[in-house]
């Protein structure tokens, strides 16, 4: 079964992600991808993540498919206007890509080409509608396609965003716009997340909780300070604080594993982000008893 079918049949799914490198040497990336084969249901491939220029998403998705994993094609609206987005989606379809994650994208000022002109011709909600249209056989201008697409479109939500209400309102809009699954921003505060899940029930949409591997107490503090919508509770920081290096990483893996175990009964799955430590994803899953 593919990613879509697993979710629709109610199986607990696990996704992870791969960040394309900046440059043409993809040996390390391929190594990571290979390590995840058989461990994850599908693998996200990011789109100039954090507004940092890297290999294009489509090319890396192809590598993933070649290795034998189903990719989730992340698409942001920052770098292409509506023509570019649609033509890339058509390209993705003929390559056999089934899953698309529609995102707005970080602003260029957060990345490595701060002077870039941001596009944002359309945004995530509208992109979801565009994907629906392509699936129905027409483009944004309403013109008929010679052959429609059949994407399984998803989106993201930030359960710990402050203030929460505007975020939740937009979450609902994404569902209405055709998002069939959600991956969340990293979550750490379990009680808070449970409240979110309670409220999300009415929308009846599969949610994959975002698990971001904490590699040290320092990283946790950094997330709290600089990453919007992410807040690591002090208890977790204290838990990590005594450890350094590999020991800290092990502790982080243990924490992530615990979180996944707690989420098994609540969520449709988890999306595991182990930035820079992709090869330890299997350890996390093992720690979670998966």
């Amino acid at each position: 079964m593919g990613f879509k079918e697993e979710i629709q049949s109610g199986n607990f799914v696990v996704t992870a992600e791969v960040g394309p490198p900046k440059g043409t040497d993809i040996s390390e990336m391929k190594h990571h991808i290979k390590g995840l084969k058989g461990k994850v249901t599908a693998l996200n491939v990011t789109d100039n993540q954090s507004a940092v220029m890297r290999i294009c998403t489509l090319a890396v998705a192809k590598e993933i498919m070649d290795i034998g994993i189903e990719p989730i094609y992340q698409m942001t609206c920052r770098d292409r206007n509506r023509l570019g987005l649609q033509s890339d989606l058509l390209g993705a379809a003929i390559m056999g890509i089934k899953n698309v994650l529609a995102l707005t994208g970080d602003h260029p000022v957060l990345g490595d080409h701060k002077d870039a002109k941001p596009v944002f011709d359309i945004e995530s909600v509208q992109l979801l509608e565009v994907i629906n249209g392509l699936n129905e056989g027409h483009d944004m201008a309403g013109l008929e396609l010679q052959g429609a697409t059949d994407f399984f479109a998803g989106a993201i939500v930030t359960p710990e965003s402050i203030p929460f209400e505007p975020q939740f309102a937009k979450f609902k809009k994404k569902v209405n716009a055709g998002a069939k699954f959600f991956q969340t921003q990293a979550i750490y505060d379990m009680p808070k997340f449970m409240t979110f899940m309670e409220r999300a029930k009415e929308l009846n949409v599969p949610i994959l909780a975002g698990i971001l591997l904490l590699k040290s107490a320092g990283m946790a503090k950094y997330l709290n300070k600089f990453v919007a919508g992410v807040s690591v509770p002090q208890e977790l920081i204290d838990e990590l604080a005594p450890f350094k290096g590999e020991d800290a990483l092990k502790k982080g893996i243990e924490i992530a594993g615990n979180q996944i175990a707690q989420l098994k009964e609540v969520c449709a799955g988890v999306h595991v982000m182990a930035i820079g430590a992709e090869d330890r994803v299997p350890d996390i899953l093992a720690a979670a008893g998966l």
Partner: peptide, 17 residues
């Protein structure tokens, strides 16, 4: 980002990313 349908994930305590 001139978004038309709500805040992006970068919204942070009422401030912009």
């Amino acid at each position: 980002k001139s978004l038309l349908n709500g805040p992006c994930g970068g919204t942070n305590n009422g401030k912009c990313e």
